[in-house]
Design a protein around this nucleic acid. Structure first.
Length: 427
RNA sequence: GGUGGGGUGGGUGAGUGGCUUAAACCAACAGUUUGCUAAACUGUCGUACUGGAAACGGUACCGGGGGUUCGAAUCCCCCCUCCACCGCCA
């Protein structure tokens, strides 16, 4: 959620930013509406406060009159009080309406992109920030896509997943299951070594939690919702991890706060059925290790690059070819100010697959969740929040299977061998 | 799920309708003093909105929401949550 003070003080930069995010012209004009609504809010608040103030004075007087036995004088004042209460109720209702409308308007505005974000509408406009093809494989002639490898080596059954649940819920088997566990442990260990504190959060969250990180109301339809208890299955560990610090005033020099956690992630992926859903390419349930940092605003962009470097080191250790994209305004998520996507090259499919997304949200999330700190002057300020996948498993598995296939079997990267307990998967 | 008891500032904890402007203590911060650590003393010490150049004011907030009353931390209703016991259970 954008800060109203920023809208007021930096109106043109906000409008340009919204334009870069391809917000509709009519919605950009809501900046003006928000400012005038806020003026009205202030005015109404002041009128209400004045009435309440007078009510407080009168009540005290009535109390005194009662004590000195002057019933009649007290009754005169009571009449006046009743009038004032009428007006205050009207103003209260009015104020609530204004606040609701203001909230609705401002919460529907996305974050303003960082100045380095390229202009563009979709994936084709993203900037290739870095390309690393040193680990590009030479595949055998009869190379198979991962869904065929999964079947051939009995690693994953998509069919059984359909039986148990439905499409997009694969069943991992034997070495396939073991590989999942190995990757989870590897990623968590790497994060711990990089100074992230490990958490194991709940994977069902309430409305307020989902709202604070920006999933609600923007992505309502993309989350699984348990209606009976009004809880949401998390689409990413970012949601519970960041919310650990909801409604917090941080003390002194605690920055940066570094958190990590493994969770399954659940996404309805409504409306995304199409070409890219084969095998592990797009799932309703998948496993992911998330890294989150909470940082002082002055250092959040250094932190973003630090997180990018961490993700890069994982891909290097796994010896996967990858590229890093700086997302354009149109392809960025709602709350992000700057996002780097990581893609690995899945050689048998001949496709780049997104395996991580690392973003700086600046104050967009912290404003919603009131995550603050006191700066040098004792002034209350919003902290910056950042997060990234490190990493999401399915497409890593897809790439590993495809890129490491040989005529003898599928080779396990050296760094994973102590976690899997085997160095090759044979049929 | 049932019954009972709780939820007050960073912490402990007083407060059962107006003397509360939420006491007191601890912690924290600043200053004074003493040969160091420390102690003592003095002062500061919540959040949000709002008026003001500032000084300094106004309003709201005692788990959340609603109600009674001229007036609510205090009384009533609903919800959340913690503790104890019972029931069920991995």
């Amino acid at each position: 959620m954008l800060e109203i003070s920023v809208l007021r003080d930096d109106k043109n930069r906000v409008k340009e930013g919204l334009l870069k995010k391809n917000v509709r012209e009519s919605d950009i004009e809501s900046v003006e509406v928000i400012i005038s609504l806020d003026d009205e809010r202030k005015q109404t608040q002041t009128s209400l406060d004045n009435i309440l103030s007078e009510l407080n004075v009168l009540s005290a007087q009535i109390g005194d009159l009662f004590k000195t036995g002057k019933q009649e004088e007290a009754n005169v004042l009571k009449a006046r009080v009743n009038d004032l209460k009428e007006s205050s109720k009207t103003l209260e209702t009015r104020l609530k309406d204004i606040k609701d409308e203001l909230e609705e308007k401002i919460i529907s505005l996305p974050n303003i992109p960082h100045s380095s974000v390229p202009v563009g509408f979709g994936a084709e406009d993203n900037e290739v920030f870095k390309l690393n093809e040193t680990d590009m494989p030479k595949l055998p002639e009869n190379a198979l896509p991962h869904w065929e490898l999964a079947e051939k080596y009995n690693l994953i059954s998509f069919k059984a997943g359909v039986t148990l649940t439905g499409a997009g819920f694969p069943l991992y088997i034997h070495h396939g299951a073991r590989l999942q566990r190995a990757l989870i442990n590897f990623f968590l260990d790497e994060a711990a070594n990089a100074g992230y504190m490990e958490y194991m959060p709940p994977i069902l969250v309430n409305k307020e939690t989902a709202r604070a990180t920006g999933q609600l109301p923007d992505k309502e339809g993309q989350m699984y919702h348990c209606e009976k208890d009004d809880l949401y299955l998390i689409p990413t560990a970012e949601v519970p991890l960041t919310n650990i610090y909801r409604d917090t005033i941080l003390q002194k020099e605690v920055f940066p706060i570094k958190l990590t956690g493994y969770t399954p992630c659940f996404r309805r992926e409504a409306g995304s059925y199409g070409s890219d859903v084969k095998g592990l390419n797009r799932l309703h349930q998948f496993d992911k290790i998330e890294i989150v940092q909470i940082q002082h605003p002055d250092f959040s962009y250094e932190t973003l690059m630090d997180m990018v470097a961490h993700v890069e080191s994982l891909l290097n250790k796994l010896k996967l070819p990858y590229r890093i994209l700086r997302l354009c305004g149109g392809d960025m998520s709602f709350g992000s100010a700057l996002t780097f996507d990581f893609e690995t090259f899945s050689a048998a499919q001949g496709k780049w697959l997104e395996v991580s997304s690392v973003s700086n949200f600046e104050t967009f999330q912290s404003n919603r969740m009131k995550l603050r700190f006191k700066d040098q002057d004792g002034k209350m300020r919003l902290a910056h929040t950042l997060n990234g996948s490190a990493l999401a498993l399915p497409r890593i598995v897809a790439t590993l299977l495809e890129n490491n296939q040989t005529n003898e079997g599928i080779l396990i990267p050296e760094v994973l061998q102590k976690y899997t307990g085997f160095d090759i998967i044979r049929s």
